[in-house]
Amino acid sequence: MSTPEGGRPAHHWCGTMPVHHQMIATRPDYAIARAAIENTTFARRNARAPRRREVVTIPVVVHVVYQQEAHNVSDEQIASQITVLNQDFRAANPDVSQVPAPFRPAVADTLIEFALAGTDPAGQPTSGIVRRRTGQAQFGDDDAVKFSSRGGSDAWPADRYLNLWVCNLVPWLGYAQFPGGPAETDGVVVAYHAFGNTGTATAPFNLGRTATHEIGHWLNLRHIWGDDGDACSGDDFVADTPNAAGPNFGAPTFPSVTCGNGPNGDMFMNFMDYTDDRAMFMFTNGQSERMDAALSQVRASFVAKKVLDGMWAGVAESVMRT
């Protein structure tokens, strides 16, 4: 949730930011970049900057890093993940019909699509899939999978591709990097058993929603509970996701009330909660606006110039472009 539009001066952002402790502590340039991105995001909202009407398609490179052949996910499984992304980000997923009535007006078609890259960084035709056999039995959340020198696969240029690594990730299902971080680690990582909706995808994380969630982060979305543990003080900087306590797990029954957010309770069916794949099926308009803000600045390299100009039309020069 968020305070009403304009109710919070943008410069308070640093004081309310909870984590990325590690990167912020070790990389002050990252902290500065993050603050600038949030300032521009708030300023666009306050200025009622134009919303994008054209579809943006993000080229994706999938790096499959495997020691065991069983983790070498098939082309078909990769295609299934791309299909899921194109449904989820366009509100074209069949289960969007399960959104409870009070939340239906908030459902967003984000006008973002994904396609396996057809051209590699050298300009040559590609399948958009890189397969690397590794000596590493497993990977953690330390970015090793993103470097050939550490048994992984090097990122393609982050201003032209969304890098998506699939590997034997332990102990959880995925992790992301917010916009503004180093290009060589930019992208998302997903466990082979939580990727796509066929092959090695395993219930209850077998509908491709882990990648949907992680790419939400890559486009600057925060968790709907506000990343404050189980408290009610955190914020996802989005107005139409109700204030919620901590993450929801499994498949809750509507309504699930926390933080005095009755009668409708937590929006646990939002992609940015922690529910099972079959229990999450929507982004909101506020989240879509936030992703648009990312695409208008720090992710602008994915947007055609004409479209980009439209997103800034009529916005005062004082709204800084990051």
């Binding site: 984590v19 995925g174 990097q177 969630h213 993450p247």
Partner: peptide
């Protein structure tokens, strides 16, 4: 399997490692 679980190492020497939940789904150690 889970998207995340809290983990805490309470070591016999009196130190601890708290595996927290990061905003980017990593587990920053405190």
């Amino acid at each position: 399997p889970s998207r995340w679980r809290h983990r805490i190492e309470l070591r016999p020497d009196g130190s601890y490692v708290d595996h927290r939940l990061g905003a980017d789904d990593r587990s920053p150690r405190a």
